[in-house]
């Protein structure tokens, strides 16, 4: 009993006061930034990028595995801000584009989804399906509910059954062997429901996009409401993305 009390006292208060405005270590590679439209750097980076995320003059965060090779080799052209607000409500929004008029680049945006906001503003339950996820996104999604990030405080939770869920949060590139179970889980969630793609693999297949063991057919016919990039997606990115989607990021 006393051991437990001592441990509890030492533990202190662990929750991050406001995960939507948290400070993150400056070494975190968050939102991608294109600093200039350098033809040669882009040509070389295009060769270098393991997931073909870079083309002239854009960087697709939905494909990026955040290995950082481009920003280390060409620091004058590419950088990643320590900004966890990486999610986007459209797939296109994840493509960071160079805008020559202003000599800046685009940033990902989450637009409030009015339909979801009306129904799920105060309570949003998600069922996670890991379909060939490497367990990094799964651990980060799990951590979103832990004592530090505690998304439960906002009424956001990951539930054990699709019957209890308002949506599905997918991790992993979707292996052919999991495609059926993923679809069945989706069908078991009552309407209305929302699909969220968590992590680069779920968004684009990432490193596995060209593997013969991957089957993303179902995703092509099922639109997602939110895309949260990262390898893995950071808990702060997950919470920020979902809260913004529900119009609660104020």
């Amino acid at each position: 009993m006393f051991e437990l009390l001592k441990a509890r006292l030492g533990h202190g208060y662990q929750a991050i006061p406001n995960p939507l405005k948290a400070n993150i270590n400056p070494s975190f590679p968050g939102v991608a930034v294109i600093l200039r439209a350098d033809e040669q750097d882009f040509a070389l980076a295009e060769q270098l990028c393991p997931t073909q995320a870079i083309t002239k003059y854009s960087l697709d965060m939905g494909k990026c595995c955040f290995c950082g090779e481009c920003s280390r080799k060409f620091p004058d052209t590419f950088t990643f801000k320590p900004d966890f607000r990486m999610a986007s409500s459209s797939r296109e929004g994840l493509v960071i584009k160079w805008q020559p008029q202003s000599a800046t680049c685009s940033v990902p945006q989450v637009e409030v989804n009015r339909d979801l906001q009306k129904l799920f503003r105060r309570s949003f339950a998600l069922r996670n399906v890991s379909a060939a996820g490497c367990n990094a996104c799964e651990l980060e999604l799990g951590a979103s509910s832990n004592v530090n990030f505690d998304m439960g405080r906002y009424g956001l939770e990951v539930v054990a059954s699709p019957r209890h869920a308002d949506g599905l949060i997918l991790t992993g590139p979707v292996s052919a062997n999991m495609a059926g179970a993923l679809q069945e889980t989706w069908e078991a969630i009552p309407e209305p429901k929302a699909l969220i793609l968590c992590g680069t693999c779920a968004i684009s297949g990432g490193m596995f996009a060209k593997s013969g063991a991957i089957d993303r057919g179902w995703l092509e016919s099922t639109p997602a409401v939110l895309y949260i990039p990262g390898c893995p997606a950071h808990p702060l990115s997950i919470i920020h993305g979902i809260m913004s989607l529900l119009g609660r990021n104020k």
Binding site: A132, M178, K210, A213
Partner: peptide
């Protein structure tokens, strides 16, 4: 098992 097979050795 096998649900997680991604063909990683081939890649």
């Amino acid at each position: 098992l096998g649900y997680q097979h991604r063909g990683i050795c081939k890649l």
